[in-house]
Simulated scan of single mutants.
Amino acid sequence: MLVIVSPQEDIYVAVRPGAQAGMQLPEAFYAELAEAADEGRPVPPWFVDAARQAWQIDLTGQPAGSVVSVRSRSVGPVTYSRASWEINKGCNFSCEHCYLEQRPFAGLPLAEKLRLVDMLQAMGVLWFQITGGEPLIDADFPPSYERAHDAGMMVEILTNGSRLARPALIEMFSARRPHKITVSMYGASPETADALTQTRGAFKSAYRGLLAAAEAGLPVEVTIIVTKHNVDELDAMRALVDELGLPRNEYGSISPTYTGNGSPLETQASGYLDKSAIFAGCPAGHTSFHVDPHGLTTMCKVGRDNPINLITEGPQGLLRLPAIADAQMLRTGGCSGCKLSSTCRVCRPMARVYQEAKAPLETYCQHGERKAS
C-alpha cells in the first residue's frame, strides 16, 4: 500500500511509509475513503490532489483498495497509538554501551508473536517500532514484520545493520516498505567499530548492509553512537553517511542499563551528553507502551515496573498501565524536594536508573553541573 489512513486517538490521519509529511482528515473524509476501498471505487479526487501535494504521487484513477490501507477504529477496552517491541533481546554484537545488561536469545513462539501483532492492531497502534537485541537475527522477524506491515502499521526497525544486506530482507523491505530503518553506526573503521561492539567483522557487515539498503532506495536513517572510543572518528563517520546520501543523527547520552548497572557509563564521551531539553512530561503508559520478548508490557523501555502479561491477560490488562506509569513519574529518592525540578531534563524512570547505578551527578543532573562550575 502507498498510503495508510487511520484513526489516531480522537482524530483521523493519512500517512505514507518513509515520508515525514502527513495530513489530518475530517471524519467524513475518512468514511468516504473507507467506502471507496470497500466498494472498489477509485481514489476520490480530493485525496488525489492531497496525495500529490503531500507526497508527490499520482493516485488518479487508482482503485482506492489497492493503494490506500484504511484501518478500522480500535476495538476493545483500550486504545493506544504507539508501541515498541523487543522481538528478542539476543544480539550478535556485544556493545560496551548497551542498556541491556543481559541479552538472552529467547522469546515467544511465532504463533504468539503474530497474535501479539494482531492485538496491537486491534488496540489502534499505528506507529510500531521493532527492536532487540538485534531484531534481524530472529528467525520470526520476517513473518512478524509482514504481519505488522499488512496490518497498516508505520513500522520502524532499530538494527545494527549487520544482516541488512541479505537478499531476502532487501526483497521483503522493497516489497513491503517500512516507515524507517534506523541503523546504528559505531565507528568509521573496522578497528574502532569492532572494538566498541566487541565483535570481529562488525564494521564490515554493518557497512555492507548500509550500502545494500541505500542501493535499494530503502528509507534508512543512520544514528551515529558517540562514545569515548569513537569520538575521534566522528567527522569520518559523518562523511561515510553523507557519501551514502542517507540522513543521520547523533546520540551520545549513554545511560546505565535499565536494571541499574552503571558500567555502560564508562563509554561516555565527555561533552556529548544531551541535557538540553527540559522534561515536560511523557505520555508513556497512556498513549504508548513497550513489550518485551515474552509479551510483558510496561510504560516504556526504561520504566519496567509491574509488567503486565499481554499474552495471558490481553488488552484488558492494560487498563492498569496508566496508573502504573503515573506512579513511576513521581519524584522519589534523591529527587524528592529538588528545587530545580521545573527545569529538570531527565525523566523520572531514567533518573532512578542513574541513581540505582550510583552514577555521578554530572552524568544526568543539573546539580552536578553547578558543582562543576
Rank of each mutant, 00 (worst) to 15 (best):
T192I: 08
I4S: 00
G368T: 03
T287S: 09
E313M: 13
I308K: 05
H229T: 04
G209D: 02
P283A: 11
G333E: 15
A214R: 09
E362Y: 08
L246H: 08
V48P: 00
Q129C: 07
I278Q: 08
P143M: 13
Q366C: 03
F47Y: 07
R166P: 02
W46Y: 12
R248F: 15
D326C: 11
R103E: 15
M1R: 05
L321P: 01
E362V: 03
A327F: 15
P256Q: 14
L196E: 05
H97A: 03
D274W: 14
P77D: 10
P135Q: 13
Q62D: 01
Y354W: 15
G337N: 11
P247Y: 13
G217E: 11
G334L: 06
G217K: 11
S94W: 14
T182E: 09
S72H: 14
G252L: 04
P247D: 13
Q129K: 10
D38K: 09
P143C: 15
E27C: 08
Y186Q: 08
A193R: 01
Q24L: 13
P178K: 02
D138F: 08
S74E: 08
G161Y: 01
G18Y: 01
H149S: 13
G40E: 06
L246K: 10
L244M: 15
V291W: 12
P349I: 10
N309I: 07
G161R: 00
V67E: 00
F203H: 13
R304S: 07
G333M: 12
I157S: 01
E233N: 10
Y251Q: 10
L108T: 02
L246E: 04
F289E: 03
L120T: 01
V155S: 00
C347L: 09
V48A: 00
V70A: 06
I170L: 05
F203R: 09
Q8T: 02
G187C: 14
L273V: 13
H294F: 14
